Computed example of a mutant assay.
Amino acid sequence: MVLLFGIGLKLADSLSLVVSFPTMLIGFALHSQGTSFASLRRNWAFAILITVGSIGDAFVGGQLAGTVSSAVLLPVLAAILVISPVKVWPHGRRPRPRSVR
């Protein structure tokens, strides 16, 4: 949105959250009715840890957005967008797990 429409970085971030939140709520409501959340029920401690970490990160990010200039935030966010796929993408060929019968 910053490049396409020329709006500020902070406004684009806020608009992204406004658009994402209803989508996440609907997805959560639809998937929670099936068996999709069985692993989440088994790993509830991890889910709570991730939730608390996300809330803390959102708070810190909100505080930084009010004090750090866009000239600093834009390169940092660009670096995160470049590094994240590299860290997530599988490196090398992994052997396929055998099915247990």
Results as ranks from 00 to 15, higher is better:
1 M>P: 11
1 M>T: 11
2 V>R: 07
3 L>V: 12
4 L>W: 14
4 L>N: 07
8 G>W: 01
9 L>Q: 06
9 L>P: 00
12 A>N: 01
15 L>D: 04
17 L>H: 11
19 V>M: 14
20 S>Q: 12
20 S>R: 15
20 S>Y: 08
21 F>W: 11
21 F>C: 15
21 F>A: 15
22 P>H: 13
22 P>V: 00
23 T>Y: 13
23 T>P: 10
24 M>C: 13
27 G>D: 02
27 G>R: 01
28 F>S: 10
28 F>Q: 00
29 A>I: 03
29 A>R: 06
30 L>S: 12
30 L>A: 09
34 G>K: 08
37 F>C: 06
38 A>S: 09
39 S>A: 07
39 S>L: 13
40 L>M: 10
41 R>G: 07
43 N>M: 04
43 N>L: 10
44 W>C: 01
47 A>D: 03
47 A>F: 09
48 I>D: 02
48 I>N: 05
50 I>F: 12
50 I>W: 13
50 I>G: 05
52 V>W: 04
52 V>G: 07
52 V>C: 05
52 V>S: 03
53 G>E: 04
54 S>V: 05
54 S>L: 13
55 I>R: 03
55 I>Y: 02
56 G>W: 01
56 G>Y: 07
57 D>C: 12
58 A>L: 15
59 F>Q: 10
61 G>V: 00
61 G>Q: 03
62 G>P: 03
63 Q>W: 09
64 L>C: 08
64 L>F: 07
67 T>H: 11
68 V>M: 12
69 S>M: 00
69 S>H: 02
70 S>H: 06
71 A>I: 05
71 A>P: 03
72 V>M: 09
73 L>V: 02
73 L>Q: 14
75 P>Y: 02
78 A>E: 00
79 A>N: 03
80 I>P: 06
82 V>Y: 06
83 I>G: 06
83 I>F: 05
85 P>C: 05
87 K>L: 10
89 W>Y: 12
89 W>A: 15
94 R>E: 04
94 R>P: 02
94 R>T: 14
94 R>H: 15
96 R>T: 15
99 S>C: 09
99 S>I: 08
100 V>R: 11
100 V>S: 13
